[in-house]
Structures are given as structure tokens and as C-alpha cells.
């Protein structure tokens, strides 16, 4: 069988994945429409919030009001501006945290003793909610842009540190010995053996980190909360409360996560195209 060339960026696997994502989202949208139709006139439109009633809540807003809301958010420029600003923060935090995490992960993975020191701390911070770190970050890094980006960076760094650390640790001994027997210096072995062997785990952790960055953005944008930003849009929608705005905001973030994940997947597939895939 001669080696076959493939379009890795949008190979068959990815195209199927994209199609499946559309199908899945579409099916959910149809179900939502049915539920909203059934709920019309049956769901309460007054909700007790502990101290007062909110009137005219649309618990499951029908498509018409969602479309109206989307049209309003688009025409006013709020939605696109918010997407641009929040995506910018996500990307900046992701790049910063990804780079930091990978560097630290490689360093702790390489230093045999550093593992014992770093390992409990990684586990310790791994599931620390961003919301818990928020006040600390504001005190440390100020009430502004820096804290937002750093909060995202921190959550990304923890997972990429773990991925890089484990990737570097689990390089099979046989490759290192074969390289050494072929005369490779430690530097060459690091560049040509350790890094590529660890790359699948590093890329997998970057993909998780990118998703996590979007999870963190809503919390991070509670700091110095102002428009335009998707996080503040959702916070405002919750404060009113305005359910159509919430739904549009959540759907927008979901769509962005899907799009970014497809991109991450394409990069991952390209970077690990040498790997044997199990069907």
C-alpha cells in the first residue's frame, strides 16, 4: 500500500465530527422548540425570588423572542463587540497559561525530584474554582484587564502543566535508549525524542485548556464588569432577569466553544498525524 496523502486539516474524521456537532445541536434546538411550544401558557410567569416577585418571566422563551433578542443584540452591535472582546481575552489567557503550563510541566517532568514537590500542588489546585480565586487575583493583580487574563491563564496553566508533565514522564525508555545508542546528545534527544513523544498529551491538554478558558471567561468578566463582554452580558441578564438574553448568551458561548474545539482538534490531528489510530 503506497503512502496516502490526506487533507489533515479537514480530513474525513473532522468533517464527520463537524457534521455530528451540527446534527446534535440541531436536534437539541428542535426539542427546545417543542418544549417552549408546550410550555406556552402553562408555565408560570411570576417567580418568587425570596424578597420579591419578578413579573413576565419567560421561563422557556419561544423562538420568536429569541430571534428578536438576537436581532436586537446584533443590530446594536452588542453581541459582536462582546464576542470580539471576550474571545480576545480567552485567546490571550490561553496563550499565556498554555505556554506557562507547558514550560513548567516539562521542567517538572524532566527533573526527577521536582515531581514530588509539584505533584501534590497540581492536584491541590486542579479543581480550585476560578470564582474562589477571583477576589485574590483582584487584590494581587488589580481591578482590571490583567486580572481577567491572568485568571484564565491560571486555569489553563494547571491542566497544561499536568499534560506536559505526564507527557514528558511517560516517554518510553526504549526510544531514549535507541537515541542514546545512536549517539544523540541530551539536547538532541530532548528536541527529537522527548518533545514529539510527549506532544500527543500536550496537545490533548491544550484542547481541554481551551474549553476551560471559555468556562473561566464568564467568571473573569465579573472583575471590572462592563460592556462589551459576554460575561457581563450574562451577569446583567441574570440581574434583570431576562431569560432570552441568557439563552442567546449561553448559545453564543456554546457555539464559540464548539468552533474553537474544532480548530483545536484540527491542530491536534495535524500534530499527531504520525500516530496509529484505532478505528
Amino acid at each position: 500500500m503506497p503512502p496516502k496523502k490526506n487533507n489533515f486539516f479537514l480530513g474525513p474524521g473532522l468533517r464527520t465530527r463537524a457534521a455530528r456537532a451540527f446534527l446534535g445541536v440541531g436536534a437539541l434546538a428542535v426539542l427546545y422548540g417543542i418544549a417552549a411550544e408546550i410550555g406556552r401558557g402553562r408555565l408560570p410567569d411570576r417567580i418568587w425570588l425570596g424578597t420579591h416577585y419578578v413579573e413576565n418571566v419567560q421561563l422557556l422563551p419561544p423562538y420568536r423572542s429569541l430571534l428578536e433578542e438576537t436581532a436586537f443584540l446584533l443590530e446594536s452591535g452588542i453581541l459582536l463587540d462582546s464576542v470580539a472582546v471576550s474571545a480576545g481575552r480567552v485567546l490571550l489567557g490561553f496563550l499565556l497559561g498554555g505556554a506557562l503550563g507547558i514550560l513548567l510541566g516539562i521542567a517538572t517532568g524532566r527533573a526527577a525530584r521536582a515531581e514530588y514537590l509539584a505533584d501534590p500542588w497540581v492536584t491541590f489546585f486542579r479543581f480550585t474554582p476560578a470564582l474562589a480565586l477571583l477576589p485574590l487575583f483582584v487584590l494581587w493583580f488589580g481591578y482590571g484587564e490583567g486580572s481577567k487574563v491572568l485568571l484564565i491563564a491560571a486555569s489553563v496553566a494547571v491542566v497544561t502543566l499536568l499534560g506536559a508533565h505526564q507527557g514528558v514522564r511517560s516517554v518510553p525508555r526504549v526510544y531514549l535508549e535507541a537515541a542514546s545508542a545512536l549517539g544523540a546528545s541530551p539536547g538532541l534527544a530532548f528536541r527529537k525524542i522527548v518533545l514529539p513523544a510527549a506532544s500527543p498529551q500536550i496537545f490533548a491538554s491544550l484542547r481541554i485548556g481551551l474549553g476551560l478558558a471559555w468556562v473561566t471567561i464568564v467568571v473573569a468578566e465579573l472583575i471590572d464588569a462592563r460592556m462589551p463582554s459576554l460575561g457581563y452580558l450574562l451577569t446583567l441578564a441574570g440581574a434583570y432577569p431576562r431569560v432570552p438574553t441568557m439563552v442567546v448568551g449561553i448559545a453564543t458561548i456554546g457555539a464559540l466553544v464548539l468552533a474553537f474545539d474544532l480548530l483545536a482538534l484540527a491542530v491536534h490531528a495535524r500534530a499527531t498525524r504520525w500516530m496509529r489510530r484505532t478505528a
Binding site: V174, E177, A178, A181, L182, P196, W274, M275, R276
Partner: peptide, 18 residues
Amino acid sequence: PGRERGYVLQEDAIFPWM
């Protein structure tokens, strides 16, 4: 290890990323 001795390991040691 030395350059005058070439060593082929028992395990599969071909570098799969190259």
C-alpha cells in the same frame, strides 16, 4: 553506549513521529 557499537533493541524502537 559508544559509536563503534550499534545496538538494535529487542523492543520496537522505531521513532513513530519520524
